[in-house]
């Protein structure tokens, strides 16, 4: 039994969890980076101007990593016949769908309502 079988599930879950974490910020934001003074803070504290602006990207990556590891573990636990039925094309379809959703989320930056 090879651990590498968990990799596609890891990648897909990482991307999905990252986007969810970003979109529902601050619900899934684990920590904040105070960009001006280089300090890390648990959660999403209100940073004074001399410490901020707060950066959450590192936390969203961590959330994605955790979700990826959990999903990879679940994928390893699945029986071979179930795993074999999962289409390998999900590994490119998932990011394509997520990029479309991302474009919709970020549309307001570009003047779209």
């Amino acid at each position: 039994m090879s651990w590498t079988r968990a990799i596609p599930a890891f990648s897909c879950a990482f991307m999905i969890a990252y986007l969810i974490s970003m979109y529902f910020h601050p619900t899934f934001t684990l920590y904040t980076y105070g960009s001006r003074i280089g300090q890390w803070y648990l959660g999403v504290p209100q940073l004074p101007p001399r410490q901020g602006p707060g950066m959450y990207w590192y936390s969203w990556l961590t959330t994605g990593l955790i979700a990826g590891l959990v999903s990879g573990g679940v994928a390893l636990a699945l029986p071979e016949n179930v795993r074999g039925r999962v289409w390998s094309g999900f590994v490119w379809l998932v990011p394509v769908v997520l990029i479309v959703i991302l474009a919709w989320i970020e549309r307001t930056w570009f003047g779209f309502k």
Binding site: T4, I7, P8, F10, S11, C12, F14, M15, Y18, L19, M22, W57, W60, L61, G64, G68, S88, V91, P95, L98, I99, L102, E106
Partner: peptide, 17 residues
């Protein structure tokens, strides 16, 4: 920022396939 995060997540699958 979000695209490169997707790219990072995709790297293991890229290696796998």
């Amino acid at each position: 920022e979000h695209l490169v995060s997707f790219g990072l997540a995709l790297l293991p699958a890229y290696w796998y396939y």
